[in-house]
């Protein structure tokens, strides 16, 4: 066993929270990017495949991919500083961030049952890494 300094814990938790906040923005932008196409149904999507793919690859999608990759790198930096069992549960705050952003900017309303389901998944992730 090797000792990990305590300030690494704080820095890595901060980095992981930052990463999950950025992951939330990325999910919001992914959702926004799919909006010009509407609901993707494979048969209808195939009919005008090139046009639909062009519609999908818009500015939002590009920004979302860049944010996703940068959040992943920040997450890896957090992971290299401290134990997985602390960092992965912190990462599951992504779901809360996503729900917050989507409620704010896309007017998605969640029922209390759906909030309960999200919280149960977060509890499952925390227990998984114990």
């Amino acid at each position: 066993m090797f000792q990990i300094p305590l300030e690494n814990l704080l820095v890595s938790i901060l980095l992981a929270t930052l990463a999950s906040a950025i992951f939330g923005v990325a999910t919001l932008l992914f959702k926004k990017a799919t909006m010009p196409v509407g609901e993707i149904k494979v048969q209808e999507f195939k009919k005008d495949f090139k046009g639909n793919v062009k519609k999908l690859l818009n500015k939002d999608m590009a920004l979302a991919i860049i944010l996703q990759l940068s959040a992943w790198l920040i997450f890896l930096m957090a992971l290299s500083r401290y134990q997985v069992s602390v960092i992965v549960p912190v990462l599951s705050t992504t779901y809360i961030f996503t729900a917050f952003y989507c409620n704010r900017f896309l007017k998605e309303k969640l029922s209390w049952r759906e909030i309960l389901g999200i919280l149960i998944i977060i509890v499952g992730v925390i227990i998984l890494t114990l």
């Binding site: 919001l28 609901e39 996503t98 729900a99 989507c102 896309l106 969640l110 998944i121 977060i122 992730v125």
Partner: peptide, 15 residues
């Protein structure tokens, strides 16, 4: 994601 709420699809696929 294109069919459902993002705030539900994200935890579902993550879990």
């Amino acid at each position: 994601l294109s069919k459902g709420k993002a705030s539900i699809i994200n935890p579902l696929s993550g879990g």
